[in-house]
Design a protein around this nucleic acid. Structure first.
Length: 591
RNA sequence: GGUUCCAUAGCUCAGCUGGAUAGAGCAACAGAUUUCUAAUCUGUGGGUCUUAGGUUCGAAUCCUAAUGGAAUCACCA
């Protein structure tokens, strides 16, 4: 049992033996300005016991001193009982952690979870918003796995629909047989280029129609380009050979481009679904709902569900012409996913603009009596804003994922060449490092803020490598590795239990922090928040760097202390590496 | 208009189920290397936690209202 839980138990004993009360005990970390590690607040007991808080604090404190080996001293400030933990208890804790090969991983819990993320459209390249989605999804999958789940990562590719036809139309018009090979443009960027061209034409047509006196709403529906796109979509659905062939060709370009990007940014999927295969699903679910009397038909033949009781509204699930809407398809796809993998839980990593959609989807699944309905979770993350405002792909005000990755990589290269420890590396190793550090900066930057909140992306700050950044933490790891290499050369044993009697305050702080790792990853899973882990990794790295500046590790004459500091440093490096891995960030041996 | 979410230092963000004098990073300024990686460390300045009420021994945190902002409410996806 860890120190915190032992202490809680002893306080509970104190409460019952001193005051005959049984209360759940919660502890909080002691504020930096006061002496102690854990603080117990006695204010709530005042009314119940009719004693003053200081008296209560002292009574409990003395009980702890007498009855627990963990506690070395205490102090009471008003209603706060600050408890200091004995150095020996910290050393024991470190030894336990060293011994525990699975430290920081929860045992398998027998449950499985699907994490669906990324979900790109095949008409344009990935941008900054996708990056937040991808990093979040991948990280959440890692975090759930560390918490004992079996995880299936899936990606649902939106590879059909009117938006795809737009790129295709513009390509027919302007393409001249251009290919990624002939142009040297990455496939997804090439498709995106035509998507933008389409929109340019469309805008002009609308402007002309409006100038001719047509209302803007109508013009947007009647512009020749948009009509042509709709016709093309119908042809596609009818299986028109020419259209399907073009669709195949352009999609392949895009997939090749996506795969390159995914590989570069280090995300992956166990299974990819394509909407071109799933878009007709869900009509059977509509039929089922009608039979069960959960859905109802309006006069024009359209099918609806009434979700007023759930605080939502009436919602269309099938058009009057019998064709699907977005939610129809999702009903079918959700059934299919659970049929395929039979997961206990399913997480959709999708932006918060779709909050309403998922409320409706889950409410319908519940009404239909799906056994999995309670295990569905929409990980709703906030938009990424730019200093210039909102990103809009059609207007070209997006930050491209590939460009951004290259930018941070280049910055990492600059800094490494200026002050990195890279002289002994081969050119390949150097390139590998620049990538690792650049990506580390980008991932950490996007993951360190609470997923739920909208965030501002400042390009200048995102390539920063100092302060609260990924590279700062990577650097700390490399720094420890450097010390460990020297220790090894000095023949200090690296993998032995340690025995010292007296610690620096900062050393016990570090052990305290390492000990918080298991609760941190549990909390991260509960909240679906990689940010909690980012925070933890930063705190640990920062405290180590303070320790490093304050206390000499390798120059310690006392062999036991030297060995202790090495063991402590090594454990910190391992913990940093584990935490960063959950964020999808690798850490280098040197940098 | 309905619903949901947000408002903390110049900027970007932490602040867990209410607890002590509200914390980091960036930016600014001043320092630290005969010694383990200076992508580091130390220090200084910077706050009516949007506003007004309420609950409480105790509120950035909970409740109500106001103000400002965002998303969504399509027979779009």
């Amino acid at each position: 049992m860890n120190i915190e839980n032992q202490l809680k138990n002893t306080i509970q004993q104190a409460l019952s033996s001193l005051f005959e009360v049984s209360e759940a005990v919660t502890l909080q970390p002691t504020k930096k300005d006061f002496e102690g590690t854990y603080t117990y607040v006695t204010f709530p007991l005042v009314k119940q016991l009719r004693k003053n808080p200081v008296e209560i604090g002292n009574a409990i404190g003395n009980y702890l001193l007498e009855n627990s080996k963990l506690v070395s001293k205490f102090n009471v400030v008003q209603g706060f009982l600050n408890v200091s933990i004995a150095d020996s208890a910290w050393v024991d804790t470190l030894n336990q952690i060293i011994t525990d090969k699975n430290f920081g991983f929860l045992p398998k819990n027998g449950q499985s979870v699907m994490v669906e993320y990324s979900s790109p459209n095949t008409n344009k390249p990935l941008h900054l918003g996708h990056l937040r989605n991808n990093f979040l999804g991948y990280s959440i999958a890692q975090i759930l796995e560390a918490n004992g789940y079996d995880v299936v990562k899936t990606c649902l590719v939106n590879d059909r629909g009117i938006h795809i036809c737009k790129s295709m139309l513009a390509y027919q018009k302007y393409g001249n047989g251009e290919t990624p090979e002939s142009s040297g443009i990455k496939g997804d960027h090439l498709a995106g280029k035509y998507y933008v061209l389409f929109d340019k034409d469309l805008k002009q047509e609308v402007a002309e129609l409006v100038a001719g006196g047509m209302p803007e709403d109508e013009a947007k529906k009647k512009a020749p380009s948009i009509v042509a796109a709709q016709e093309m979509l119908i042809k596609w659905e009818q299986g028109d050979e020419e259209v399907v062939a073009l669709w195949r060709k352009m999609n392949e370009w895009v997939f090749a481009g996506f795969n390159e990007t995914y590989k570069k940014i280090g995300v992956s999927f166990d299974k990819t679904y394509y909407e071109s295969n799933t878009y007709l699903l869900g009509k059977d679910v509509v039929e089922e709902g009608l039979q069960k009397g959960i859905f109802f038909k309006k006069e024009n033949g359209s099918v609806w569900i009434d979700l007023k009781e759930e605080g939502l509204d009436e919602k269309l699930v099938l058009r009057s012409d019998g064709t699907s809407v977005y939610i129809t398809q999702d009903l079918g796809t959700t059934d299919m996913k659970f049929k395929d993998f039979n997961n206990d839980k399913s997480v959709w990593v999708v932006g918060n603009e779709q909050d309403y959609h998922f409320q409706v989807l889950f409410a319908i699944m519940k009404k239909l009596g799906r056994s999995y309905a309670d295990g569905c979770y929409h990980l709703s993350y906030g938009m990424v804003d730019l200093p210039s405002g909102k990103m809009k792909s059609r207007e070209g005000t997006v930050v491209d994922a590939d460009d951004l990755a290259e930018e941070v990589r280049a910055e990492a290269e600059n800094v490494a060449k200026e002050r990195g420890d890279i002289a002994s590396m081969s050119s390949d190793e150097q390139q590998h490092l620049f990538n690792m550090v650049g990506l580390g900066a980008l991932k950490y930057f996007l993951l360190k803020v609470d997923p739920k909140s909208r965030m501002l992306f400042n390009p200048q700050e995102s390539v920063q490598l100092q302060g609260n950044t990924g590279p700062y933490i990577q650097y700390t790891h490399a720094r420890i590795c450097s010390v460990l290499r020297k220790a090894e050369a000095m023949q200090v044993p690296l993998n032995q239990l340690v025995n010292v009697s007296e610690l620096h305050k900062i050393e016990s702080d570090l052990i305290y922090l390492i000990g918080e790792y298991p609760t941190t990853i549990k909390q991260a899973a509960l909240d679906y928040s990689p940010a909690i882990i980012a925070q933890f990794a930063y705190e640990l790295a920062k405290t180590f760097n303070q320790f490093y500046a304050e206390v000499s590790i390798l120059n310690e004459p006392d062999a036991n202390k030297l060995q202790f500091r090495i063991a402590l440093s090594k454990t910190i490096a391992e913990t940093i590496a584990k935490a960063m891995k959950l964020l999808g960030i690798d850490v280098p041996q040197r940098m």
